[in-house]
Nucleic acid binder design. Structure first.
Length: 875
RNA sequence: GGGCGCUUAGCUCAGUUGGUUUAGAGCACCUCGUUUACACCGAGGGGGUCGGGGGUUCGAAUCCCUCAGCGCCCACCA
């Protein structure tokens, strides 16, 4: 068969991906086979493929493809996430450019824009995954805002609410006074900034005493509802329980004690403003304090700010300083550097603000997530170090704020009616009305109902993903969920261990009383060579699709997998893709070589071929065992590296050179057939990593039995192998290597035949024919040194080889060399002897260790004797 | 501030419950080679004493303590 000299990855990749798709090879339906399921971590619907996705999805594809070859019913469910904050921000920005302000249009109008945007830019990432070779069951593609997925989320909310796990409560949130919206914690940047620490005087009621406090925000005194000191603080004990007077407004506030207050900081006395500081808020709850909100939406002071009403917080800070000073209530002011939170979007200083939010109670429902990961390992983490991170989070878990003040997402299924925040939970208005009227004395109409404006946190849909993609929330007993759930592996980054992984485990046990997956493989972060995170701003992220086009998907996949142990960051550099490409080139050329060998049916199999093939078969199984083991432990980089060395070194550099017919000769049928079978096994092992190339070569090989694609072929079965064969060949390699060295040293061409002899030995020399062929040796037999006038000798294991010499022999140099080796061995012998002289060692160490040391003595002794003899002979 | 983790060849990393010679790999590097699969190649080679110090042990890269440096996550101290 004619195989083109250059591998064309562009055409080949297109050809095989279409073939796989047309033949539905990635399709999965429940059947009698064992399922192997992975749900994709859904990327943002409008996102584009970046290096992180490439790493993550290559890993998933490797796992899925191998499972498929292992005969499992492999099902990889693809999909995308609506990513409420990110997508909404993009849509708002886009509308702004068109001159449309989000607050000027209705919710429905905004959502229409958002859907237009999603349809225009959405789903591109899935097409890019196909280019990478991902073997997803594309018929199962899901989007978190699809009708069925939407309903699942709503139903989950209802179920949790029915169990009293969801409640409405107050919470301190980050308020962006410029954008007049809440921002999530992730969108706040804390930056060290210069500011001032003001020391203020608070008079004590009915006394001449006063308390001094320190604050960076004197304008918030209007919201003060207490002063707080540490109960251990001797200076202030007498004041606890008394009342202080807030400067300027003259309000009376209690003086309380709490260990939260740091004795060392400032004056050791704290003013408490529950409405405008998270810690003060917590103190307020604990001590049942009032909460006075002093700000308007735009962070100007409201009526509680008295004569400052309507003025901006920073203006007030300046003006109040003057007023306090004139009233002799400002003791002093010092420079102070502290962290100020600024909104990522507007850069305005974020104002902590109290607001009504929806929460999910976490303490009870997290219990199975703790037991089944940390105690039972029903869910395993790779690497396991992330268990401690997971543990720490779960043990300090707080209720989950699931509401977001956005429009793009799953609208909270809560309908308010009447006053006082009375509400009813329902899938839609009609159902809400029916439910409401069923329990109510008065008859309500749809106009009386108002749905909550907020949407649910994106993660509130993501955490259901492994269940909802199989419709297991709405139909908990359907065929699909019963078959595919729990899934097997999850591949994701450690950055979303809390956001996503932990919550999926929680929801799994909550909704199905079963884990969502058995194994979690954590990838690292893709960084550049300088360890910088890849980002758009830095421009250090290569264009993923360009890489695939330039190097080929297989090469990129190999490049990514070469140095990406679980949990380790991947320092990506294009040279990795080049290494991958070199490997594809190597494999391609190996196939060309083998394909080019013509068969002579009359020729019998030479001994050298038989030896080589026998060895490689054993070596293959030896490596396969390692590969399987490493797969089981998710050591994917190690799997690739052992395959890489198996193919490049053992198969190409050794076996093919052993089998290669002499110039003008043909190969015997038996050898060729056996070789093809081994080649095919190699391809199978590599297929998960390099699906396109291996599929192409598989069909190019002259095997008439190949009728089906490699993708759905079976993983090589591990056969028994002879460890001695593997070990002996290592000795053979060493011998050949020594001969090559010798040639190089003596400047003897590799084409010139040599005679090689070895001293009689109780164990027989293996692979003689191989040594002869590869090292171009004429005679290779036992002999005694004194049969020759002059020899050059070398030791390998227990064998001493020598090559007869005729001329050009530098005796002194040779003696020098041998003496060096002798010296080394003598010192080594001494160290082992010392070890064995140590009674503690001999008495305490296990027998096998001591025996090994004894064997070392015997071996080294032999070597030394032989070396001394050689030196003697030469002198 | 709290928590977790890391430090082994120039680079990226292995090193499984402490024990087979003088600690491994890939890449990079150096030398030689235009051999009829592959220069996207072949053959050969150099390079680390395992961050510093201390301890446990017959024996430590591996366990413990300590110091130093680095990274990540969480909180965000008036």
């Amino acid at each position: 068969m004619q195989v083109p000299p250059k591998y064309n990855h562009i055409d080949t990749e297109k050809k095989w991906y279409s073939f796989w798709m047309e033949n539905n090879l990635f399709k999965s339906l429940p059947n009698e086979k064992e399922p192997f399921t992975i749900v994709i971590p859904p990327p943002n619907v409008t996102g584009l493929l970046h290096m992180g996705h490439m790493l993550n999805n290559t890993l998933q594809d490797i796992l899925v493809r191998r499972a498929r070859m292992l005969g499992k019913n492999a099902c990889w469910v693809p999909g995308t996430d609506h990513a409420s904050i990110a997508t909404e921000a993009k849509v708002v920005e886009n509308l702004k450019q068109k001159g449309i302000n989000k607050s000027d249009i209705s919710r429905d109008e905004f959502l229409k824009h958002a859907w237009d945007w999603t349809e225009k830019y959405g789903g591109g990432i899935l097409e890019q995954l196909k280019k990478l070779g991902c073997s997803c069951d594309w018929d199962r593609t899901k989007f978190t805002l699809d009708d069925d997925m939407y309903e699942s989320v709503i139903e989950a909310f209802e179920k949790l609410h029915d169990k009293d796990l969801i409640y409405r409560g107050f919470r301190m949130i980050n308020w962006d006074p410029e954008a007049k919206t809440t921002v999530s914690d992730e969108e706040v940047n804390y930056i060290e900034e210069d500011s001032s620490l003001f020391y203020l005087k608070y008079l004590i009621e009915n006394s001449n005493n006063e308390l001094e406090i320190a604050t960076t925000r004197p304008e918030t005194i209007f919201g003060d509802t207490a002063l707080c000191v540490n109960p251990k603080d001797e200076r202030y004990k007498q004041f606890i329980g008394k009342y202080a007077i807030v400067p300027i407004c003259g309000r009376k506030i209690p003086i309380i004690a709490d260990s939260y207050v740091d004795l060392e900081f400032g004056t050791g006395c704290l003013k408490v403003t529950p409405a405008h500081d998270i810690n003060d808020y917590n103190l307020g709850i604990k001590h049942n304090l009032d909460s006075i909100d002093i700000f308007n939406e735009n962070a100007t002071l409201n009526i509680n700010g008295l004569h400052y009403e309507g003025k901006d917080r920073f203006v007030v800070r300046k003006e109040i300083e003057v007023e306090l000073k004139s009233n002799n209530l400002l003791v002093r002011k010092e420079n102070y550097i502290h962290n100020v939170g600024r909104s990522e979007r507007t850069n305005s200083v974020v104002e902590p603000r109290l607001s009504k939010q929806w929460f999910l109670k976490m303490d009870d429902i997290t219990k199975p997530a703790i037991e089944n990961v940390l105690e039972n390992e029903n869910v395993k983490f790779f690497p396991s170090k992330f268990k401690s991170t997971y543990k720490y989070w779960l043990e300090n878990i707080k209720d989950w704020n699931i509401s977001r003040q956005l429009s793009w997402g799953h609208q909270i299924p809560v309908f308010y009616y009447g006053h006082d925040g009375d509400y009813i939970v329902a899938k839609n208005k009609t159902e809400a009305l029916t439910k409401l009227n069923a329990k109510s004395k008065i008859l309500y109409t749809e106009d009386d109902l108002n749905q909550d404006n907020d949407v649910l946190d994106t993660w509130f849909s993501s955490w259901l993903w492994p269940i909802s993609v199989f419709d297991g929330i709405r139909n908990p007993d359907n065929k699909e969920i019963n078959y595919y759930y729990p899934t097997q592996d999850l591949v994701t980054g450690p950055d979303i261990i809390f956001f996503w992984v932990a919550r999926m485990i929680i929801s799994g046990y909550e909704f199905r009383d079963e884990k969502p997956f058995s194994n979690v493989y954590f990838t690292g972060i893709v960084r550049d060579k300088l360890r910088r995170k890849m980002s758009k701003q830095l421009g250090n992220s290569p264009d993923a699709i360009k890489l695939i086009e330039e190097y080929g998907a297989d090469s990129v996949r190999v490049g990514l997998m070469l140095s990406s142990a679980a949990g380790n960051d991947l320092l990506f550099d294009e040279s990795l893709c080049q290494q991958g490409k070199n490997f594809t080139n190597k494999l391609w050329n190996a196939s060309r070589l083998v394909n080019g060998w013509e068969i002579d049916v009359n020729k019998s199999q030479p001994k050298v071929n038989q030896l080589g093939l026998e060895w490689y078969n054993d070596k293959f199984n030896y490596t396969l065992e390692l590969i399987n083991k490493n797969f089981d432990n998710y050591r994917i980089s190690d799997v690739l590296m052992s395959s890489y060395k198996l193919i490049w070194d053992d198969f190409c550099s050794w076996l093919l050179e052993i089998i290669k017919p002499d110039y003008g000769e043909k190969i015997d049928l038996k050898s060729k057939n056996e070789l093809i079978i081994l080649f095919e096994k190699n391809l199978k092992v590599l297929h998960p990593f390099m699906p396109f190339l291996t599929e192409e070569i598989f069909h190019n090989l002259p095997d008439v039995n190949v009728t089906s694609p490699l993708t759905t072929s079976s993983w090589p079965k591990l056969e028994n192998y002879n460890q001695n064969t593997v070990d002996n060949f290592e000795i053979t390699k060493e011998i050949i290597s020594q001969i090559r060295n010798y040639r190089k040293e003596k400047n003897i061409s590799f084409k010139t035949s040599l005679d090689l002899y070895y001293l009689p030995n109780k164990s027989s020399l293996k692979n003689i024919e191989i040594i002869q062929k590869i090292a171009t040796i004429n005679n290779l037999e036992e002999s005694m040194k004194n049969n020759f006038a002059m020899v050059n000798s070398f030791l390998i294991k227990n064998f001493e080889f020598f090559i007869p010499l005729e001329e050009g022999f530098d005796k002194d140099a040779e003696i020098e060399k041998l003496k060096k080796e002798l010296d080394y061995n003598e010192r080594f012998l001494k160290s082992v002897q010392n070890k064995l002289k140590n009674k503690d060692f001999v008495n305490n160490a296990p027998d096998n260790i001591v025996d090994t040391e004894k064997q070392k003595i015997i071996d080294t002794d032999l070597k030394i004797k032989s070396l001394m003899k050689s030196i003697n002979d030469l002198s």
